Simulated scan of single mutants.
Amino acid sequence: MKDVSRRGLALTLLLGLIAGYIDAIGFIETGGLFVSFMSGNSTQAGAELWAQGAASALLPLGLVATFVIGVAAGALSRGPVRTRRWRVVAGAAVAVAICGIVGLLQPGAFWRFALLAAAMGALNTLYLSEGRARIAITYATGTLVSLGVALADLITGRSRTAWRRPLLLWGSLAAGAVVGAGGERLLHGWALLVAAGALGFVAVAVGAIRERSVPSAP
């Protein structure tokens, strides 16, 4: 995260907030699964396999699979950095909007959460470099690892400020989860459409921001 400009950091924090918001809604509406935290879904699939049989593990495993598909789709996008990022965020906005509309029309259509997982996976490809995602936008584990490493750097004197950015990103995810849980309680099926509108706004912002620090993926 240290190589990202301040405008890029602001964009990342906003996306983290939206991701936490969407993940909380997905968690509530699926009854305990995640659309961005695939470690949790993997554990849940293993537990469900023994508790209720193979069929009950299909949904969490399906979310893992579609998350990976979303990452692959985002990574396959080519073109200038700003154009590629715009495509990814705009595509995620469309996917979330479709999921929200389907949820209003057919609340029992659980396949829509696979679409959400794919959208969240794609968002993690915004900062690709040397074949890896430089910033874990939609999941907290990688961010907390970065925070722990930065705290070690603080203790050893290698860096006094590296901890700030991962803490901010984790905070945005956590705050988004709080807002998302409240949004689901107050807005019900309309809450995801709010998230889609927010992602649409971010897509417009991405098209206007020039990010100099991270080169496009080869």
Rank of each mutant, 00 (worst) to 15 (best):
T83F: 11
I98R: 01
G32R: 02
A51K: 14
I69W: 13
P80V: 09
W50S: 15
A73R: 11
F67N: 00
A45Y: 06
R78N: 13
L49N: 09
V35P: 05
A73K: 03
V94A: 13
G26T: 04
G74A: 12
V71G: 06
T83Q: 14
S56E: 14
V89G: 09
N41K: 10
L49I: 10
V94S: 01
L33I: 08
A55Y: 09
L61I: 15
V94K: 02
T66L: 15
R85G: 10
S36R: 04
D23F: 01
L63I: 06
V89E: 02
A47Y: 15
V68L: 13
S39P: 03
V35N: 06
S39V: 06
Q44V: 09
A97I: 09
Q52A: 15
S42A: 15
L49V: 12
R78P: 01
A92Q: 00
Q44M: 15
A92M: 05
I22D: 01
L76E: 13
A65F: 11
V94Y: 06
A51R: 15
T43L: 08
G40K: 03
G70M: 06
F37S: 12
I28C: 02
G46I: 01
V64D: 01
T83W: 13
S36A: 12
V71Y: 05
V96A: 01
I69H: 06
A54C: 07
G46V: 02
G91A: 07
V88C: 07
I28E: 07
T43C: 02
A90G: 03
V64S: 01
G40L: 03
Q44Y: 13
P60A: 05
A47Q: 11
A45I: 03
I98M: 05
G26C: 01
G32F: 03
E48W: 13
I98T: 05
V81D: 09
A57Q: 07
F27W: 12
G40W: 00
F34S: 13
R84V: 09
P60W: 09
A75M: 13
V68Y: 04
V94F: 08
G74N: 02
A65N: 00
S56G: 10
L33M: 15
V81L: 14
V35D: 04
G31F: 00
P60L: 11
V89L: 08
F37A: 14
T30A: 10
A72I: 13
W86N: 08
N41V: 02
I25P: 01
A95C: 05
G26I: 02
A45F: 00
L33K: 03
A90D: 00
V64L: 09
T43G: 05
V96L: 05
V96T: 02
I98P: 01
A65I: 14
V94W: 01
V94C: 10
G79L: 08
T30Q: 08
R82V: 06
A73F: 14
S77P: 04
G79Y: 04
L63K: 06
G31M: 04
L59S: 07
